[in-house]
Structures are given as C-alpha cells and as structure tokens.
Amino acid sequence: MPARNVTVASLCTSCLLAAALGTGCSEGSPSSAEAEKRAAAPALSKAQAQQVLDAYTAEANRAGRKLDRTVLPGIEADPQLSMDDASLKLRRVIKRPPPTVRFTNTSFYIPRVSGYPHWFAAGAVTGQGKRSMRHALLFTQAKAGAPWLLTANPYPTSDALSNIALDPEGFATSVDADERKGLAAAPGKVPAAHAALLTDGPGAANASLMADGAQTSETYKALKQGEKTLAGRGVTLSSRFSPSQYRVFALRTKDRGALVWYVLKQNEAYSSSKRGRLAVGGDLLGLVPVKAARTRMDTTVLVQYLAAVPPKGRATVTGMYRKAVTAHGT
C-alpha cells in the first residue's frame, strides 16, 4: 500500500472539540477573610465594565477586519494575547478574516478587591441560533491607570456564570487560589489535577479531583485513540499537559463552591522515521512553514478552562478555548 501523509494539525484540536460537542442553592456564613473581601471596593462599576467590553469589541473587530496583529497588545494580555495572535497568523495564511464580533445577553460579575490586579468576568453570547456561542470573558487591570485587557475567554457549554453568587449590591466575591476551606479542592490545585488526568489518565495522582466528562476522561480516551491511529500510519505522537504560569482566577458560587478560570500547557511531539509522512496543516498554519515538518514536529498549545469546584465532590469542567501558539519542525 502507498504511504499516507499525516497532516500535523495539532491532534488534540479535533479531540477536544469533538469531546466538547458531546456533552439548588444554599448559603453559609462567610469566613472572616471573605467578610473582609466583601468590605473592599469593587474593581469598577457595571457601567464601566460595559464600556470596557464595548471598547474591546470595537478594537477586536478592527484587528479582525485588517488581520492586524499589532492591535492585540493594546486590548489583550496573555494567555489570550498569544492565542489570538496565533489565530490571526492562521487567518492571514488562509486569507479569511474572522466574523464580526457582537456580544449580546451580557452580564457582569465584578469582585470586590483590595489590590491589583483588578479584574472582572463577563458572560455573553455571540452568533444566533445553532451558531450561537457562550463566552466567559475575564478582563484584568495590572495597576492603577493601566488599560483593561481581555486575559481569558473560554467558551462555556452551559450558562455556568449565572451560578456566581452576588451580594445585595450586585457584586461578586473572589476566591483565593489557595483557599481550601469549604471547597472540595483549592482552585489552585485544579490545574495540576486536570493536567495529570489528561496526561496519565484517571489513575494519575490527584486526577480523582476531576469529574468524568468531555474535557477530562473522554478527552484522555480520544487522545489515546488518536495516538494509536497515528501509530498505524507510521507516526509517533507524545502529548503531555502541565499547569501553565498564568494566574488562576475564581469567584464564589451560589452553592458556596467556586467557578475557576485556569490555563494548561500542552506539549505535542510528532515524529516519523520516514521523510514526507508529516505535513503542516490545520491549527498549525501560520506558526511554521508548510514544509517544515520532515521527520519531527514539536508544538506548544495553550488551553483555557472554566471549571466549577463544589463544596464536596469533584470539579466539573464547563468550558474551554484551545490554540496552538508555537511550532517547530525538523
């Protein structure tokens, strides 16, 4: 049989997206630390948050129309910046601007914070009908007077943000990354547990913190199947996930749990002993020359996640956004 080329398109793109398509309130007394947070001033008003979102939308659409990556550093911060920069590189190659962005059904979740970075979350929808998509946008301000920048934007599969608890004045309460009291796991522990599960499976250390689902156990199974399929075509793939250096953000939910934004880094390595078996395509377009992959391709992927951590039980992943950001072929 003739040899079949394998297009290197960052295998997990299809695995994760395919998996994503498959898929009562109680109040307690706040701790002293939480009471102190509730006494702090909110990062900004809801009217100001709407202005931030409107300004971002206008500039993002300008960048999209012109496929101008130079606009992004003025409106985004990492990890969103690196991911959207890579997306515009791809769109320049395929000569297809992104659709115009228009956010509807917006809601704002603004925590009271005493120090920087200031931040807030926004729930919104783009598109209509079957093409509609939910967003869990997270904006940050590094210091006083600094611009508000979009830092994360995972895509929830449900209206997860509506479960965020609000005080009588309509503001949210932040949860520290290392806060363990009253939670099944500290928000800062979730990335490592999730990375361990995706790399080594449900039996990995701390993987039991994560509930089964499209972005956890099912993604691991899809990855293993993908590796087996590629092996049959003469290509070896190794994939490893790890917590990224980016900050974990979390807000208190109505059930006294937490909704958590975090980022994992995925390193993929494709190799074949026979030249010509690998070809660059899909998610990697724009990151490396099309003919760069001869016998090996190494990629770095960032995956944003949104997860709900309950008071008891296991964390459930409710949203994600994935993009390859670097690639190197030999």
Results as ranks from 00 to 15, higher is better:
residue 285 L to F: 08
residue 172 A to L: 05
residue 276 G to L: 13
residue 220 Y to H: 14
residue 69 R to Q: 15
residue 162 S to T: 11
residue 286 G to C: 12
residue 192 A to V: 04
residue 21 L to T: 03
residue 191 P to W: 00
residue 265 K to V: 07
residue 92 R to T: 13
residue 47 A to T: 06
residue 324 A to D: 08
residue 288 V to Y: 08
residue 252 R to L: 10
residue 227 E to S: 10
residue 65 R to H: 05
residue 294 R to F: 13
residue 55 A to T: 10
residue 147 P to H: 12
residue 292 A to E: 10
residue 309 V to K: 02
residue 296 R to D: 12
residue 68 D to N: 14
residue 150 L to R: 14
residue 323 K to W: 03
residue 165 A to E: 14
residue 121 A to T: 04
residue 11 L to V: 14
residue 227 E to Y: 03
residue 295 T to R: 11
residue 57 T to F: 02
residue 288 V to K: 06
residue 104 T to R: 05
residue 176 D to N: 06
residue 97 P to H: 01
residue 236 T to V: 12
residue 257 G to I: 11
residue 145 G to P: 02
residue 114 S to W: 12
residue 105 N to F: 04
residue 88 L to E: 02
residue 282 G to N: 04
residue 83 M to L: 07
residue 71 V to W: 00
residue 274 K to W: 14
residue 194 H to N: 04
residue 7 T to G: 01
residue 306 L to S: 01
residue 89 K to V: 11
residue 294 R to G: 13
residue 259 L to A: 14
residue 140 T to C: 12
residue 8 V to W: 02
residue 221 K to Y: 13
residue 294 R to K: 15
residue 5 N to R: 15
residue 260 V to E: 08
residue 45 S to L: 12
residue 91 R to E: 04
residue 305 Y to W: 03
residue 52 V to I: 06
residue 192 A to Q: 04
residue 166 L to G: 02
residue 35 A to M: 09
residue 160 A to M: 07
residue 278 L to G: 12
residue 26 S to K: 15
residue 135 H to E: 00
residue 108 F to E: 00
residue 316 T to D: 07
residue 58 A to T: 14
residue 198 L to K: 01
residue 312 K to L: 14
residue 183 L to F: 07
residue 57 T to D: 07
residue 234 G to H: 03
residue 209 L to D: 04
residue 306 L to P: 00
residue 302 L to P: 01
residue 139 F to N: 09
residue 306 L to C: 01
